Simulated scan of single mutants.
Amino acid sequence: MDMSAYFAPAFFSHLLGKCLKRSNPLFEVLKLGFVVLGTFSLIWWPYIHSMEALLQVLSRLAPFERGLYEDYVANFWCTTSVVIKWKRLFTTPTLKLLSFGATISTCLPSMIQQIWAPSKRGFLYGLLNSAFSFYLFSFQVHEKSILLPLLPASLLAIEEPVLYNWITLNALFSMFPLLVRDKLVLPYIALLALFSLLNHAAPNQSRGTKETRTLELSLKALVLVCALIFHVVYLTLPAPNRYPFLFEALVMLLCFSQFVSLAFYTNAKQWTLLKRSVLVHKEKKLL
C-alpha cells in the first residue's frame, strides 16, 4: 500500500473543511479539486500512455497478490487470524472490500471533525488517527508501517508526552520479531535503552490527579513487565513444536491492544477540540 495513502484522508478533510469555511466555498472547492487533479496528472503523466506501465505501477502500490498480510504485524487482520482464518474463509476480492470498508469507517470520525471544524492541532490528530486506521485495518501492512503513526505523534510530543512515549515503546516492541530475524537485536537494545534514559531524564509532564497518575504508571509498569518477559522468553526459549509462532503472536497481541487503546484516545482527544471551538465561537458572539 502506498504510504502516502495513510495521511490522505487527513489532508482531504482538513483542506475541504478550510474551503467550506471561506466566503465562497463552492469556488474554493473547485480550486482545490483543480490543483489536486492537476498534480495527479503531472505525477502519472509518464505512465498513462502505456496500460502495461500503468498496471505495473499500480501492482507495486497495491500488492494485493501478496495476500491480506505477510508477516506477524500488530494489526487487526493478523491478530484476529489466530481465531478467524481470514485467508481461508474469504477470497482476495472480498478481503479487499472488508479492509477498505474497515479502514474508511474508522477514518470517518476524524475526517468529519476536521471538515466540521478544521484546525492546526486537529490536523495533527487527524494525521495520527488516519495513519492508525490504515495501519490497523488496511490490506497488506508491513511491520515498519507503524512508523507512519509515529510521525504525527512526534509532532504532538510536547502536548502529548505520554502518548508519544507509549506509542514509541510499543512501535519498537512490535518490530522486535522482525529485527531478530534481521539480526538487529543489539541496535534495538541500544536504541531502546537510549530512548528510556532520555525519557527518564526529561521533566515530568504528566497531568491529572495523583490517583490518575498512579493508575497510569501502574498500567505502564504492567505492560512493560510483560514486554520484558516476552523479550527474555523470545531470545532464550524455543517455541513449542506445535505452535512455532507462539511468541510472535503474543508480541503481536500485546502491541495490537495498545495501538487500539491509543487510537481510541486520540480520536476522542480530537473531538474535544470541536467542543472547544464551539465554546470559543459562542464566547466571540457574546462579546
Rank of each mutant, 00 (worst) to 15 (best):
W86E: 02
W116I: 06
G101C: 07
L97Q: 13
R66C: 03
C107Q: 06
C107R: 00
T80N: 05
S105N: 04
S105H: 11
S105M: 14
G67V: 07
K120F: 10
I112M: 11
T103L: 01
A74V: 03
C78L: 05
T94E: 14
P93W: 03
K85M: 11
K87V: 09
E65C: 03
F64C: 04
S105Y: 13
K87F: 03
T106L: 10
M111P: 01
D71Y: 06
G67W: 12
T92C: 06
W86T: 02
V83Y: 15
V73K: 05
R60I: 08
P118N: 06
T80C: 03
M111Y: 04
T94F: 06
K120L: 14
K87L: 09
C78F: 12
L98Y: 15
W86I: 05
T79P: 04
R121L: 09
I115T: 13
S119P: 13
R121Q: 10
K85Q: 15
F90W: 12
V83E: 08
A102C: 14
A102M: 15
Y72I: 06
C107A: 09
R66I: 01
N75D: 14
P109A: 09
S99A: 09
T106R: 03
L68P: 00
S81Y: 07
L89F: 07
S119D: 11
G101A: 13
M111W: 07
K96E: 02
P63D: 11
W86K: 04
R60E: 10
A102Q: 04
M111Q: 07
A117V: 06
A74L: 07
A117H: 14
M111A: 09
P63K: 10
S110T: 08
K85D: 15
P109V: 10
P93H: 03
T91I: 03
R60Q: 14
R60W: 09
F64G: 03
K87A: 14
F64N: 05
L61I: 10
P93L: 05
S119E: 09
L61H: 13
P63T: 10
F76N: 01
S99V: 00
S105G: 05
Q114V: 03
K87W: 07
S81F: 06
